[in-house]
Simulated scan of single mutants.
Amino acid sequence: MTKQAFFKVITPESGFRDLLGIYINWTGVGFVCAIIAERLDHFSGVSYASYYTTSLNSAIGVKFWALISIIGLLLFCLSLPLVYLDQRSTRFKKNCQRFRYFSYGFFLVAFDEGALILGILLANLIHTNERADLLTTKSFLFTEASFLSIVALIIANSLLWLLGESLYNRQHKNYSGVVYLIVTSPLKYSVPVYLLFTIAFVMLVINQS
């Protein structure tokens, strides 16, 4: 399979056009909030300014983003057998659709949260001061708002979006892309890979300290 053909197969029904638009929207919100909080920090003696600069620090964090992402990925693993059964019997269709929609919600929230964090990290990268240091060390668990951490977040967050959009399409309520590729693959390949990935992921979550 060529690279072009592979990208065509894994492309969700919604396409990649929405991805850029959502990134611009939510990353922009995070960026603007961080800049405003940084400006207000100069007036930290004023009660309302102190309130808003502190609120940005406690509102968003990687731990919460990681929690939503992990739940979404676990639900994704549970969704695949249901999708496989749905392909072979209509009796599972309604329950499968509801479960896919429920699972999709976690991916949607995780992606939006990740995009907000990305905007704040970009603002910190451009202009780092005492407030920005507090944000990265206390809230985001990054030692610094580095280019590497931003690239890693973009990759991870984009993969979450891809899995979510492949699992459920808001317009047609069906699955596509990666999910369709997995459930239509020969069982002798897909089942071992699925079990290996699921067990490895569960063990990673359990052993995370």
Rank of each mutant, 00 (worst) to 15 (best):
T198Y: 04
S89L: 01
I35Y: 11
Y84H: 09
T184M: 06
G30Y: 06
L204I: 04
L85G: 01
M203E: 07
Q87R: 14
A115L: 07
I36E: 02
Y84F: 12
I206T: 03
L135T: 10
N124F: 01
E144H: 13
I70C: 08
V29W: 06
R131P: 00
L163V: 11
H42R: 09
I120G: 05
A66H: 08
A145N: 03
V32C: 05
S44W: 08
M203S: 12
I70D: 09
T137M: 10
G30E: 04
G114E: 01
S185K: 04
L122Y: 07
A110R: 04
F201K: 10
F142W: 13
F107Q: 11
L195R: 03
K173P: 09
A59D: 08
S139C: 01
T11Y: 06
L159N: 08
N25A: 14
L148E: 15
A37E: 06
E13T: 15
L125P: 00
V46S: 01
N25F: 15
L122A: 11
F99D: 09
N169D: 15
E130R: 13
E130L: 13
G114T: 03
H42W: 06
S50M: 04
F142D: 00
T136N: 09
R17H: 13
V109W: 07
L141Y: 09
I117N: 03
V62H: 04
S158M: 05
L160T: 04
L78P: 00
S149L: 03
L74E: 09
E38G: 06
A132R: 11
L56H: 05
G105M: 13
S55I: 13
L118W: 05
K8S: 11
S103V: 09
S14V: 15
I155W: 07
A132M: 14
R88H: 14
A145R: 09
N129M: 02
F7H: 05
K173Y: 13
I126M: 05
C33A: 14
A34L: 06
H42P: 00
L187F: 09
L108E: 15
L108D: 15
L204E: 01
K173C: 10
L196N: 08
F106N: 13
L40E: 08
L67W: 07
N174E: 12
Q97G: 02
Q87V: 00
A156K: 11
Y175E: 04
Q97A: 06
I199M: 10
L82K: 12
G30F: 06
T11D: 07
S146D: 03
G164Q: 06
Y175W: 14
T184I: 05
I199W: 06
M1Q: 12
P192M: 04
L153E: 02
K93A: 14
I70H: 07
K173M: 10
F16S: 13
L116A: 10
L204G: 07
